Amino acid sequence: MKPADDAPAPPDLDWRAVSEQLYRMRRALLVGACALLALVGGLLAWLVAWWVGAVLALACVGAAAWGLPAIRRNQRSWRYAERADDLLIAHGVQFRRLVVVPYGRMQFVDVAAGPLERRFGIATVTLHTASASSDAVVRGLPPAEAARLRDRLAALGEARSAGL
């Protein structure tokens, strides 16, 4: 997957996209939140006034109409590329971000998957460096790819930091 022409990421790299399951998980969260909001709206309409339910129903429709395309674009913006000396992570639709993590600066690599992520078959890889403000996270990877990336980054990090 190549980044957009106006993205800050170098376009000539072998970019890897994250799993489609990231979109499906976020879509399920949005639909669940809208269903809960509709349920509360129906309860309030029954107890208080009909217009309260109408306002909440419109809010549900608006959230779904705006949210579904937004989470699709966000999922498609996540990508990463492995270079000889560092890992590049790019994401963002409106505010694009490119994180470059040198292998020698990594302290440890973490793979995490909560219950919902496990249900959808994805995991999150987090790279920890000495910097407290490091935002080196790759979301939505299949567990096998997350484990492969973790092992590769750990080996490269150990090899690069051995000379320090």
Rank of each mutant, 00 (worst) to 15 (best):
2 K>I: 08
2 K>Y: 03
3 P>F: 05
6 D>R: 08
7 A>W: 07
7 A>T: 02
9 A>W: 07
10 P>H: 12
10 P>V: 14
10 P>S: 08
12 D>G: 12
13 L>Q: 00
14 D>H: 13
15 W>V: 00
15 W>T: 01
16 R>G: 00
17 A>W: 02
17 A>N: 01
18 V>C: 05
18 V>N: 04
18 V>Y: 04
18 V>H: 07
20 E>W: 13
21 Q>D: 07
26 R>P: 04
26 R>V: 01
26 R>Y: 01
26 R>A: 10
30 L>G: 09
31 V>I: 15
31 V>G: 03
31 V>M: 03
34 C>D: 15
35 A>C: 01
38 A>H: 03
39 L>C: 09
39 L>W: 10
39 L>S: 09
39 L>G: 08
42 G>F: 13
45 A>L: 00
47 L>P: 02
47 L>M: 02
47 L>Q: 12
51 W>F: 15
51 W>C: 08
52 V>A: 05
55 V>H: 09
56 L>C: 03
58 L>E: 02
58 L>R: 14
58 L>A: 11
60 C>Q: 14
60 C>H: 12
61 V>A: 15
61 V>C: 12
61 V>W: 15
63 A>E: 04
63 A>Y: 01
65 A>P: 01
65 A>W: 07
67 G>W: 05
68 L>E: 01
68 L>N: 00
73 R>S: 06
73 R>D: 07
74 N>E: 15
75 Q>M: 15
76 R>S: 09
77 S>R: 15
78 W>C: 13
79 R>F: 07
80 Y>F: 11
87 L>V: 05
88 L>Y: 03
90 A>M: 08
90 A>L: 12
91 H>A: 14
94 Q>D: 11
94 Q>M: 10
95 F>Y: 08
96 R>E: 11
96 R>V: 13
96 R>T: 11
97 R>N: 15
101 V>M: 10
102 P>Q: 09
103 Y>V: 04
104 G>N: 05
104 G>A: 04
106 M>T: 11
107 Q>V: 03
108 F>C: 04
110 D>P: 05
111 V>Q: 11
114 G>F: 00
115 P>S: 00
116 L>T: 08
118 R>A: 00
119 R>D: 00
120 F>G: 03
120 F>S: 07
121 G>E: 02
123 A>M: 14
128 H>D: 05
130 A>C: 05
133 S>N: 14
133 S>T: 14
134 S>N: 13
135 D>R: 15
138 V>C: 03
138 V>T: 01
141 L>V: 08
142 P>D: 15
143 P>S: 05
149 L>R: 09
152 R>M: 09
152 R>E: 07
154 A>T: 14
154 A>E: 14
154 A>C: 06
155 A>N: 02
156 L>C: 05
157 G>A: 10
158 E>C: 01
159 A>Y: 03
160 R>S: 08
160 R>I: 04
163 G>C: 06
163 G>M: 09
164 L>D: 01
